Simulated assay, not measured.
Amino acid sequence: MSYLTITPVKAPQPATILADNVNVSATTLDNRLKAALEHARRITEIYGLGSLDAVLAWETVEELQQVDKSLPKNTPHNSFTHYCTENPSALEARIYDV
């Protein structure tokens, strides 16, 4: 007579979902996105791509990426653009249509 041994499986951790109405700064969102990516990669290594844990982790990454895309991006200012905004009447700051 043989018996079947069942190994208990660790319960999946709930996915962190970012609500649409939450105001998150860009640096916090970047940190959360990096952490979510690392978590999803590790969970995929441990449990495999088809596991519920991996699916939830990657879904969280996708949600964070969507929020990141929806936030307005600040354009980087170099010294020339800074000069042009401070001196709009300067010859260098004038914009011509060709």
Results as ranks from 00 to 15, higher is better:
Ser2Arg: 09
Ser2Met: 03
Tyr3Ala: 05
Leu4Glu: 03
Leu4Ala: 09
Thr5Asp: 05
Thr5Gln: 04
Ile6Ser: 00
Thr7His: 02
Thr7Leu: 00
Thr7Cys: 02
Pro8Leu: 01
Pro8Ser: 04
Pro8Asp: 02
Val9Arg: 15
Val9His: 13
Lys10Ile: 00
Ala11His: 03
Pro14Tyr: 01
Ala15Cys: 14
Leu18Pro: 13
Ala19Ser: 06
Ala19Arg: 03
Asp20Arg: 10
Asn21Leu: 06
Asn21Pro: 11
Asn21Ser: 11
Asn23Leu: 11
Asn23Pro: 12
Val24Gly: 07
Ser25Thr: 08
Ala26Phe: 03
Thr28Phe: 02
Asn31Tyr: 04
Asn31Pro: 13
Asn31Trp: 02
Asn31Gln: 06
Leu33Gly: 02
Ala35Arg: 11
Ala35Asp: 06
His39Cys: 12
His39Ala: 11
Ala40Cys: 04
Ala40Asp: 00
Arg42Ile: 15
Ile43Tyr: 08
Tyr47Gln: 15
Tyr47Arg: 15
Tyr47Leu: 14
Gly50His: 06
Asp53Arg: 11
Asp53Lys: 10
Asp53Ile: 02
Asp53Ala: 09
Ala54Arg: 02
Ala54Trp: 04
Ala54Met: 10
Ala54Asn: 01
Val55His: 04
Ala57Lys: 01
Trp58Ala: 12
Trp58Cys: 14
Gln66Gly: 11
Leu71Ala: 09
Leu71Lys: 06
His77Gly: 14
Asn78Glu: 10
Asn78Lys: 04
Ser79Arg: 10
Phe80Arg: 14
Thr81Val: 07
Thr81Ser: 09
Thr81Leu: 07
Cys84Tyr: 06
Cys84Ile: 11
Pro88Met: 06
Pro88Cys: 05
Ser89Leu: 13
Ser89Asp: 13
Leu91Gly: 08
Glu92Ser: 11
Glu92Lys: 08
Glu92Trp: 02
Glu92His: 03
Glu92Gln: 11
Ile95Pro: 10
Ile95Met: 05
Tyr96Gly: 10
Val98Leu: 03
Val98Pro: 06
